[in-house]
Design a protein around this nucleic acid. Structure first.
Length: 223
DNA sequence: GCGACAG
DNA sequence: ATCTTGTCGC
C-alpha cells in the first residue's frame, strides 16, 4: 500500500497542548457514514506491543472467510509516553510504517482502542483513519470515556453515552465469562455499521478475528 | 480539589 | 502495554 501520509508535523507533538490542538484540528476532518459490509472484502486488524523502548506494530489482513491475506510488522523507537486520551501519538508512527509496507489496501481497519468513544472524539481508530483515509472501527477491552450499562447476556449491546447522553459507541458482550468489549466507529463508519461489522468478525472469540490475530502475532513475534 | 483514566 | 502461576469456568 502506497504511503500517502504527510508525516512529520502532526505526528510528533512536543507538548500535550500541541497534541490536543492536533486532535481538535483532526476533529474537523472526522467523517461518520455507514459502511456497507457486503461491499467489504479485505479487513485489517492492528496491534502494537512493546519491548523495552521499541514499539512493535502488526497489521493482519484477512478476507471474509477469515483467511489470512497478508501480515506485516515494523519496529520503531517509542517517542511519546502513554497518556490516556493520547494513545495515537504513541502508536500511530509504527502503525503508519506498517501500512507503508502493506501491499493490500484494506476496506476497513479494526483497532485495539477507541474510535469516537474518546473525550475529544479522537481515539486512535479515528486518528489513524483520518491519516490513512480508510474506514476504521475501534474495539477496546475497557472504556476510556463514557458510561454504559453492563450487557447481561451474550449478544447484547448497550449504548455507551457521553456526558451529554449522546451515544458514542456500544458495550457488547461477545462471549460468556468475559468482560464486554467496547465498540465505536472510528472514521467513515457509523454506530450501526461498526457494531454490525464487529459482530460479523467475532468467529466465536471475544475479540473480532483481525484484532485477535494481530494481538497474537505481536506477542509471538517477541519470542 | 477528588476520581477516572484505551494500550 | 508489561511483570508473572496457578486456577476457575465452559
Amino acid at each position: 500500500m502506497k504511503s500517502m501520509v504527510d508525516i512529520s508535523n502532526f505526528l510528533y507533538p512536543k507538548t500535550l497542548e500541541e497534541a490536543e490542538r492536533i486532535q481538535k484540528e483532526f476533529l474537523k476532518k472526522l467523517v461518520l457514514v455507514p459502511l456497507d459490509f457486503s461491499k467489504v472484502s479485505l479487513i485489517a486488524g492492528v496491534d502494537v506491543s512493546y519491548v523495552d523502548d521499541q514499539a512493535l506494530g502488526i497489521v493482519v489482513v484477512i478476507n471474509k472467510n477469515f483467511e489470512i491475506i497478508e501480515v506485516v510488522h515494523e519496529r520503531l523507537k517509542v517517542t511519546f509516553p502513554y497518556i490516556p486520551g493520547f494513545l495515537a501519538f504513541r502508536e500511530a508512527p509504527v502503525i503508519l510504517k506498517c501500512f507503508e509496507k502493506l501491499k493490500n489496501t484494506p476496506d476497513v481497519i479494526l483497532f485495539d482502542g477507541q474510535g469516537i468513544a474518546h473525550p475529544r472524539r479522537l481515539g486512535i481508530a479515528s486518528h489513524v483513519g483520518i491519516l490513512l483515509n480508510i474506514p476504521t472501527i475501534g474495539v477496546a477491552k475497557t472504556i476510556l470515556y463514557g458510561k454504559c450499562e453492563k450487557p447481561s447476556f451474550v449478544g447484547q449491546a448497550t449504548e455507551l453515552k457521553d456526558r451529554n447522553g449522546e451515544v458514542i459507541g456500544f458495550c457488547y458482550l461477545s462471549k460468556k465469562n468475559t468482560k464486554p468489549i467496547v465498540i465505536s466507529p472510528g472514521y467513515k463508519t457509523d454506530l450501526e455499521s461498526s457494531l454490525h461489522i464487529v459482530k460479523s468478525l467475532l468467529n466465536g472469540f471475544k475479540l473480532p478475528e483481525p484484532v485477535r490475530l494481530a494481538h497474537y502475532y505481536s506477542q509471538k513475534l517477541k519470542m
